[in-house]
Structure formats: structure tokens, C-alpha cells
């Protein structure tokens, strides 16, 4: 009873932690100061058909005097292709793409499965049970196969091995342990519907120890992912949208202009030491 209630609390707390830490990290990245322009073409939001060949507004004479043509559809399509299909990996390293895409697809499907389990806990028509079961099986199989292939590739590819740290192996093994314990629990020990139902309704029903271990691992993973490098789902948004595709010019009255003026109130406190660099004035000066 106590253990079951604790599991309920832990699952909800872990999910909340996942979301909260993700939000804090995203906010921290977002609040970093305005950076120098580092765009790299093609920039998919460039309108007028330019995104296709990598052109930009710099191709126009007196570009600053003309309205900018922004193609939101192309930008959205491009980021979706990256998120859903990891297109750059597909184009540039097909052999790794199969494992990586399988793994990421599996994770996405597992999120859908989790959502279906939550719905099922409150509304449980038979069709939903079938659907959730099918989605769960697909998610577990693709994510596990993908993770296994990634681990094997990392262990046996001479180049990847040189650059992979023990922590990075640990990350994959950790996820695999959650997936494999999940497969074992939900196929041999308990029904995921019954457990989800119990956890979400705080029913206090006893849980098999195998399920408790799996859920504990799952909770730890939910907290660990946003703290670790595996939070690259946050970083990827910023590196594309806010760095490589960010080519907004600093024109009078633009948002860049406003951010630059706003930044003048915060003077850097650290200065460089080489003699040719003029150190910024400190507040004491």
C-alpha cells in the first residue's frame, strides 16, 4: 500500500521534473545574450523560393529597403523533417540513421503510448486497449532495437569508440535497462493498463517488485534525461532556430535593435587580458 502510493507520487513527480527541468534549461538557453550572427545557408525561412537553393535577402539590391519575404511553411517543414526523420543524418550518414531514427521514433511512439495509457485510465473502450497495445509494442520494439544498434555501433565502430565517454555508454545502457525491464514487466508480470490505472487513481494496490524496479528506473531516467546531454531535443531547437537560421538584420526599430539597446545596461564584468584588447570599464572606474 505504502509502496504503491510512493510509486504513484514518484511517477507524477518524475514527469513533473522532466517537464520542469526541460523548461528551466530551455529558458536558460533562451535568456543568453543576443549573439553575433552565425547563420548558415540554406536558411529555410528565406522566402521567394530562395530557401531551396540557399539564397538570402542579401541577393537583392538595397535589401534593407525592401520587405522581407519569410516562408514559415518551408521553415516548419524543415524543422519537422529534422525532428521526425533526422534528415541531416539520413542525407549524410545513412548507416547510422537506421539505428538513430529507429530509436528516436520508438521514443516518440512511447510518448504516444504513455498518453494512451493515461487516457485509458479514465476512459477505456476496447478499441483504445487494442490501439494502446499495438502502439506500446511498436514503441518498445523500435526503441529497444534502435538503442541496441546504437550501443553496438558505438562499441564496435573504431572512430565512435575513440570519442565516446564512459558516461555516454552509460546513457544508452540506462535507457536500455528501462526498455528491457519494461518489456519484461508488461509482457510477463503485469498489465500496463492495470498499473497505470492504479498509479493514476492512487488506488494503493500492491505492485510486483519487478514493476516497482522498472518504474523506479523509469522515474530516474525521466529526471536524468533533461539534466544530461540527452536533452539535445532542447539544444537542437536553439541551434537551428536561434543560430543557423537566425539571420534577422539589425535595422532601426527591429527586434535586434531593441535587444541591443536593452543590453547596454548590462556591462560585462569579465575582461580579456591581452594588451591589445581594451578592457571594458569596471563599475569602480
Amino acid at each position: 500500500m505504502v509502496v504503491a502510493t510512493l510509486v504513484s507520487v514518484c511517477v507524477i513527480a518524475a514527469m513533473a521534473c522532466f517537464l520542469l527541468i526541460t523548461a528551466v534549461k530551455a529558458r536558460r538557453l533562451k535568456n543568453l545574450p543576443l549573439h553575433s550572427r552565425l547563420e548558415l545557408y540554406p536558411v529555410p525561412k528565406e522566402g521567394g523560393g530562395r530557401a531551396k537553393y540557399g539564397g538570402s535577402y542579401f541577393e537583392e539590391v538595397e535589401w534593407w529597403a525592401k520587405p522581407r519575404s519569410i516562408d514559415k511553411v518551408s521553415e516548419t517543414r524543415e524543422i519537422l523533417m529534422e525532428m521526425l526523420f533526422i534528415r541531416k543524418l539520413f542525407q549524410n550518414q545513412r548507416s547510422l540513421w537506421w539505428a538513430s531514427w529507429g530509436f528516436h521514433l520508438g521514443i516518440y511512439v512511447m510518448f504516444a503510448w504513455t498518453a494512451l495509457l493515461v487516457v485509458h485510465a479514465f476512459w477505456a473502450p476496447a478499441a483504445l486497449s487494442w490501439l494502446a497495445t499495438a502502439v506500446g509494442v511498436l514503441g518498445f520494439v523500435t526503441a529497444t532495437l534502435g538503442a541496441l544498434l546504437l550501443l553496438l555501433r558505438r562499441a564496435f565502430d573504431k572512430t565512435l569508440r575513440k570519442y565516446t565517454t564512459p558516461q555516454e555508454y552509460f546513457n544508452i545502457v540506462f535507457i536500455l535497462s528501462v526498455l528491457l525491464s519494461g518489456i519484461y514487466c508488461w509482457s510477463a508480470i503485469a498489465s500496463p493498463f492495470a498499473v497505470a490505472n492504479g498509479v493514476l487513481h492512487f488506488s494503493g494496490q500492491d505492485l510486483p517488485w519487478q514493476v516497482v524496479i522498472h518504474v523506479a528506473l523509469l522515474c530516474a531516467m525521466l529526471v536524468y534525461i533533461p539534466l544530461s546531454k540527452m536533452s539535445h531535443y532542447i539544444g537542437k531547437f536553439f541551434s537551428f532556430h536561434k543560430v543557423l537560421w537566425e539571420n534577422d538584420p539589425n535595422l532601426p526599430g527591429s527586434h535586434v535593435d531593441q535587444r541591443m539597446h536593452a543590453a547596454t545596461s548590462r556591462r560585462p564584468q569579465t575582461s580579456w587580458s591581452a594588451v591589445h584588447v581594451n578592457p571594458p570599464k569596471t563599475t569602480e572606474e
Binding site: 538557453l29 543568453l32 545574450p33 543576443l34 549573439h35 553575433s36 552565425l38 539544444g235 536553439f238 541551434s239 536561434k242 543560430v243 543590453a263 548590462r266 560585462p268 564584468q269 569579465t270 575582461s271 580579456w272 571594458p280
Partner: peptide
Amino acid sequence: ADSNNNFLQPLHLT
């Protein structure tokens, strides 16, 4: 540090 404000975001990301 803030001595490199204009590159902090891309640097952290990479």
C-alpha cells in the same frame, strides 16, 4: 563568461 556574450549561446550549444 560575459566577456564572450556575443558567442555564449552558440558556444554552449556546441
